[in-house]
C-alpha cells in the first residue's frame, strides 16, 4: 500500500487539529479520502439509530406538545389539530399537575441537600485515614445505587409497614409509636425522600472521595498548626476546594430527582390524596390515558426545568474560575 506510506508524512504537520481539513480536502491527499470514508462508515450505524430513536423524537415532541394528539390519532395522523400553547396553558391550570410540580420541588429541594450531606459525611469519614475495612464500607454504602428502584421500593414498602415493618418495630423498642408512613399525607413524601437518599448517596460519595484526593494535605496541617479544629478545617479548607465537585454532583442528582417516578409508582401510587404524585408520574398517567399531546407538553415542562438547572451549573462553575 503505497498510498498509506506517502500520505502519512503529508499528514504529520496537520495532525494537531482539524483546522487543516479544508486544505487537505482540496488538495486531496491520497489517505484523506480513505479516512473520510472510514469516518462516515464507522459513524453511520450510530447516526441511523440515533437519528431515528433520539433526534427525531426530540424534534417530534415539540410538535406533539402544540397539538391535540391522542391515542386515537395513531392511525389517522392528519386529524391532529394545531392548538398552539393550549396544552401548556392547560398544564398551568391543572390542579393535579400543580400539586405534582410542588411535590417534585419538595422532593428535589429536601432530597438533594440531604443526599449531599450524607454523601459528604460518608466520604470525609472514609477519608480520615482509616485503613481497615475501608473498601468494605465503601462497597456497602455504594451497593444500593446499583439496585433496581422498583425492587428496593417493594422492599421499603414492607420496611415501612405500620405494624409488621422493621422501622416501626425498631422505633417501638425506644417507645416511639411510629406512624403509618406511606398512608399519611405528612409522612409519605419524607419516606420517599429517605429511600431516595439511601438509594443514591453512594454515587455522590464515590465522586467526593475522588475529589478529596485533590485537597492538599499541607493545607490541613497548616490549619491544624494555626489551631483550627477538625470542623473548622472541614468548613474552611475541604469545602471550598470541593466546591465545584459539590456543585456538579448536586446538579446531576437534582436532574435525576426531578424525574423521580418509580418511588411513588410502587410505594404509594401517588397517594395518599396525590401527596406523592410526581411530575413524571403524572406525565406517564396522562400518556396512559391516551392524552399524548398533553403528556408531551408536560414532559417538555420537566425538560425546561432540567435545562435551566443545567445552565445554572455552567454559570456557577464559570463564575468560580473568575
Amino acid at each position: 500500500m503505497t498510498t498509506a506510506t506517502s500520505s502519512s508524512p503529508a499528514q504529520q504537520p496537520g495532525s494537531t487539529g482539524s483546522r487543516d481539513t479544508r486544505r487537505s480536502r482540496s488538495s486531496r491527499a491520497p489517505g484523506a479520502a480513505r479516512e473520510e470514508r472510514a469516518g462516515w462508515l464507522l459513524t453511520l450505524p450510530f447516526l441511523l439509530l440515533f437519528g431515528i430513536f433520539t433526534a427525531w423524537p426530540v424534534i417530534q415532541s415539540v410538535f406533539f406538545s402544540v397539538t391535540d394528539i391522542t391515542n386515537r390519532d395513531l392511525r389517522t395522523p392528519f386529524q391532529v389539530n394545531f392548538v398552539a400553547f393550549e396544552q401548556y396553558a392547560k398544564a398551568f391550570a391543572d390542579p393535579v399537575f400543580r400539586q405534582a410540580a410542588l411535590n417534585t420541588a419538595y422532593f428535589v429541594l429536601i432530597g438533594v441537600p440531604l443526599t449531599m450531606t450524607v454523601a459528604l459525611a460518608a466520604a470525609v469519614a472514609l477519608n480520615t485515614g482509616i485503613t481497615r475495612f475501608r473498601s468494605v464500607y465503601r462497597l456497602g454504602f455504594y451497593t444500593p445505587v446499583i439496585t433496581s428502584i422498583v425492587a428496593v421500593a417493594v422492599v421499603w414498602r414492607f420496611l415501612l409497614h405500620p405494624d409488621s415493618g422493621l422501622v416501626n418495630t425498631v422505633l417501638g423498642w425506644v417507645g416511639i409509636d411510629g406512624p403509618n408512613w406511606l398512608g399519611s399525607t405528612t409522612w409519605a413524601m419524607p419516606s420517599l425522600i429517605a429511600m431516595a437518599v439511601w438509594r443514591n448517596f453512594g454515587t455522590a460519595m464515590i465522586i467526593f472521595l475522588a475529589g478529596l484526593q485533590s485537597v492538599p494535605q499541607q493545607l490541613h496541617e497548616a490549619a491544624a498548626i494555626d489551631g483550627a479544629n477538625a470542623w473548622q478545617r472541614f468548613v474552611n479548607v475541604t469545602v471550598p476546594i470541593l466546591r465545584p465537585t459539590i456543585l456538579f454532583v448536586s446538579v446531576t442528582t437534582a436532574i435525576g430527582y426531578l424525574q423521580f417516578f418509580e418511588e411513588p409508582f410502587v410505594m404509594t401510587q401517588g397517594g395518599p390524596l396525590n401527596s406523592t404524585i410526581s411530575a413524571s408520574m403524572y406525565t406517564y398517567q396522562q400518556f396512559s390515558f391516551g392524552n399524548y399531546g398533553y403528556a408531551a407538553a408536560l414532559s417538555y415542562l420537566i425538560f425546561l426545568v432540567i435545562a435551566i438547572v443545567t445552565a445554572l451549573q455552567f454559570r456557577f462553575l464559570s463564575e468560580k474560575e473568575d
Binding site: 427525531w56 417530534q60 406533539f64 394528539i69 436532574i255 400518556f287 408531551a296
Partner: peptide, 19 residues
C-alpha cells in the same frame, strides 16, 4: 443530547415504535 432525559422523548418514541 447528553442531558436530554427519557421523559422528554417517550411519548413520540412510543408513537414511532407503534407505527
Amino acid at each position: 443530547t447528553l442531558m436530554i432525559p427519557g421523559v422528554v422523548t417517550f411519548v413520540p418514541l412510543f408513537v414511532l415504535v407503534a407505527n
